[in-house]
Design a binder for these strands. Sequence first.
DNA 1: ACCTGAACACCGTTCAAGT
DNA 2: ACCTGAACACCGTTCAAGT
Lengths: 227, 227
Amino acid sequence: MVNGKEAKSRRERPAKAPLSREAIVDQALEILTRYGLAGLSLRKIAAALDTGAASLYVYVANLEELKSLILDRAIGDVKIPPKIKGRWRVRLKAVAWSYMKVLIARPGLGQLAIQSIPVGPNTLRLMEAIAEMLLEGNLDQLAAAWALDAILVHASAIAAEQDARRGQSRPLEWMKPALEDLNPKEHPNIAQLGDALLAGDGEARAQWGLEFMINGILSTPIEATKL
Amino acid sequence: MVNGKEAKSRRERPAKAPLSREAIVDQALEILTRYGLAGLSLRKIAAALDTGAASLYVYVANLEELKSLILDRAIGDVKIPPKIKGRWRVRLKAVAWSYMKVLIARPGLGQLAIQSIPVGPNTLRLMEAIAEMLLEGNLDQLAAAWALDAILVHASAIAAEQDARRGQSRPLEWMKPALEDLNPKEHPNIAQLGDALLAGDGEARAQWGLEFMINGILSTPIEATKL
DNA sequence: ACCTGAACACCGTTCAAGT
DNA sequence: ACCTGAACACCGTTCAAGT
């Protein structure tokens, strides 16, 4: 039985790739990209892999676990800026920005990020990088821990929000009808904000969001918070 | 046909309440409370109202619209602090806090808040109140508009995060296994954060979150943000 | 106008049976 | 050990038919 592994001639079909965790997550990510979160299903993934849904359960505990895996895989695309002494603040903003962009790049990922708890090598790598920057910024243990969570949740939330509004033609279009019906007598302050509610592309808003998050975190010691 | 409306004796059954948008949203909120977002379905709502799912479509366009209605109804519980000149900052924190608590009070609401765009009288009332406070704080139009959105998204995100972790016994329990497996050589900075990642009840974190949000927003002019 | 049952096109998950 | 088909218990939505 020498070399039993390499059976070179498998005629039938273009060599249906063997099932594996990786292949499943790959296919899942592709289906997510094409059909969105609502269109993601084990049955569709299985079909794309030329098998039945039941077969996936050998590699994945359930749909929820698969979602965590998808998320961690996507997070693999986040660009982590190289360590440069003294530049932790710009680097922090850069990772957060990259994370947000990765989540926004594919439909459904934003929602996924806020729904499921990603655990995997890429998520750890991302958290490790952010922790390093915050600690270099001289935040103490507790502040760094809370800040880490806050930054990830914030970026996820912005991505999820964009997700929810996707499908609408222009970003904030959904608000227009509501604003036009608005009775300025009843809601004078919203009326005063007027077009500003619709203004600004997502990028500028998101940048400002990261900026004020970091400013706020750095200027708000935890002890100062009273219950 | 005088008084044809009041047919007083309807024997059979305890007078099955007539279907209505209100009754449907009521029932939906109850089912959401009991079964969570995953357990919410038109069929279950219909069954609870002693009818078939198809009947609901007279009052509601589809499940998505119903979700928006549920959300707006829930937002009706948010406590809006009375206007007191010069106290806009504490009032702002108080509404945001109330909004967050309302979303956290029922399972699924946090997820709902970040998934669907609520439009309704209660949502408008909430936005109007926050806009008023921000304008009293001398934010200009654009800053106030963006800040309004940022605060609502933040509160929703915290609620959604809590939602995602619900089911676990203690709030941050899910992290423990991941942290124990952690190789401190590979992830020294996460290791250094250690227990801090698990520390602090949700309330303290959430309070700190609102605090730094407001601090950050107030100290970060939009023009300062560079792309 | 409102309500209904049945049907359609889907789901995730389990399980006995095959290899 | 891995894969499969069939079954179970669900979904949202549509539609013809009833009142």
